[in-house]
């Protein structure tokens, strides 16, 4: 299986959106896409489907998209794999992009796998670095991704088929404004509601209950050492100041202080934020399994022998209950208020 590579051009960034707002990761990818397009010598384009997506044009041009391909159809109001896939395929097959970048969110991972299979091309999941291989004639995209729970990194490429597709972890790249003129390209695609095999019966927003910790680039986590349920507030306060979220060790879940959905570790969620603050967490191997590939780990623990210090970039030996509010206060003062990981 191989494609006529020379037919494909441009870097395309998938615009994920929810309730009229673009997901932040899509803007991050636009910024990265600009850079890749420059390296290859092509355009960076956004593409989206939905019931009213044209409205995103301004924002997309602000973040560097030179073209915006889109389809509007009432059947695309809410995300459903099949109509999304078919309409996106229509765009991709018609315009043949060379690279497609998609945020590695729940939605992004859902759609990417099915698109790549239809396109008979390779897909690299959850990449954390993207580079161009200047040595290859076709300037292949090099996609670096963690495997084995972050124990190993693999550099993947897709030499013979196009587009080269990758889902990219949110928070890996920075979104930067880079206003350009944007050309809108509207396509029509017919979808019949009763041909769609899926209906959405209900949507529940439960930020407090089900939360994907992996989406945050700052996590303030607490363990048994925070003392009592009420002190979860201390984590939350600091997380708010830093524009992140909070999490806990299994002990805290077992104490019944917070739901399981906040647990980090072997039997909880695996996270790789830029900053992970572990307050009153001993650093048991099962906890480390879920967070040790964080970029910066800050440990606060009363016990200087606590194993968490072995993996911490910065350690503070002391009482977490005292130190957390101090951090909140000082950081609050020194940070831009409302620092932004908030989803755009």
């Amino acid at each position: 299986m191989s494609h006529n590579i020379s037919e494909y051009k441009d870097v395309w960034v998938f615009v994920e959106h929810d309730r009229g707002k673009i997901e932040h990761v899509s803007l991050e990818l636009l910024t990265k896409g600009c850079q890749l397009a420059q390296d290859i010598g092509c355009n960076v384009c956004a593409f989206a489907v939905g019931d009213s997506v044209e409205a995103f044009s301004d924002k997309l041009s602000e973040y560097g998209a030179e073209k915006f391909y889109f389809i509007e159809n009432p059947a695309l109001r809410e995300y459903r794999t099949e109509p999304y896939r078919d309409s996106l395929l229509h765009l991709i097959e018609k315009y043949k992009p060379e690279i497609i970048l998609i945020g590695a969110t729940t939605l992004g991972r859902d759609i990417a796998g099915t698109l790549a299979t239809k396109l008979d091309t390779g897909l690299t999941a959850d990449t954390t670095a993207l580079d161009i291989d200047f040595e290859s004639e076709t300037k292949n995209l090099l996609m670096t991704r963690p495997t084995f729970g972050g124990n190993l990194m693999a550099v993947i490429y897709c030499p013979d088929t196009r587009p080269q597709m990758s889902t990219v972890r949110p928070g890996v790249f920075q979104a930067m404004k880079n206003p350009v003129n944007l050309e809108k390209i509207r396509e029509e695609f017919e979808l019949l509601e009763d041909k769609i095999p899926k209906k959405i019966l209900e949507k529940v927003e439960s930020d407090s209950d089900k939360i994907n910790l992996g989406f945050y680039d700052v996590i303030v986590a607490g363990g048994r050492g925070i003392g009592k349920k009420e002190n979860i507030k201390l984590l939350e306060d600091l997380a708010n100041v830093l524009g992140g979220t909070w999490a806990v060790s299994r002990k805290v879940v077992q104490m019944g202080w917070v739901p399981y959905s906040r647990q980090v570790g072997q039997t909880g969620q695996t996270v790789h934020p830029k900053i992970y603050i572990a307050a009153g967490i001993s650093g048991a191997i099962q906890h480390l399994a879920g967070m040790k590939s964080s970029e910066i780990i800050i440990a606060i623990n009363r016990d200087p022998q606590a194993p968490i210090f072995d993996v911490a970039t910065y350690g503070i030996v002391g009482d977490a209950v005292e130190i957390l509010p101090q951090l909140t206060q000082i950081f609050g003062k020194r940070l831009k208020v409302g620092g932004s990981n908030e989803k755009e």
């Binding site: 690299t124 190993l152 993947i156 013979d160 072995d310 503070i316 030996v317 130190i323 101090q326 000082i330």
Partner: peptide
């Protein structure tokens, strides 16, 4: 369609630095 160019081990975590209040607040 995808090929592995190479694999490598992310650098090992070293024990970091213990911060001490240095006149300033921690």
């Amino acid at each position: 369609p995808t090929k592995v160019k190479r694999v490598f081990i992310p650098s090992k975590r070293e024990r970091g630095e213990i911060l001490e209040p240095s006149g300033k607040e921690i």
